[in-house]
């Protein structure tokens, strides 16, 4: 439970250099420094990470689930937006 003294933080981990930070979960901590430490202890115990971000959950603005139809359904019929109509040369690697 989020309390006034230990707010909720969202944790993002970068697993390898060159990849983006990815959301992995959340935790409670009194401040940003302790949140980074707790994120290290909770989410990188099995060698998952090379970098950690924490963000106060309260700083996140989310889309309204009620707007799902308006927000996301129009993209369903636009298959031509997927970059699948050309070959990516092997040398490009991860992208």
């Amino acid at each position: 439970m989020s309390t006034p003294t230990t707010p909720l933080w969202e944790v993002f981990i970068r697993s390898r250099t060159g990849l983006a930070h990815k959301h992995v979960g959340s935790l409670h901590a009194a401040d940003a420094t302790l949140a980074v430490q707790a994120a290290r202890d909770l989410y990188t115990r099995r060698g998952e990470g090379t970098s950690v971000w924490v963000v106060p959950s309260s700083a996140i603005t989310a889309s309204d689930p009620a707007d799902k139809g308006m927000m996301f359904d129009p993209a369903d019929s636009k298959v031509y937006r997927h970059p699948t109509f050309y070959e990516v040369p092997d040398d490009v690697g991860h992208m």
Partner: peptide, 11 residues
């Protein structure tokens, strides 16, 4: 005292 510290101390 809290789950996060339980894990930290165990680590």
């Amino acid at each position: 005292p809290l789950l996060e510290e339980d894990m930290a101390l165990s680590n």
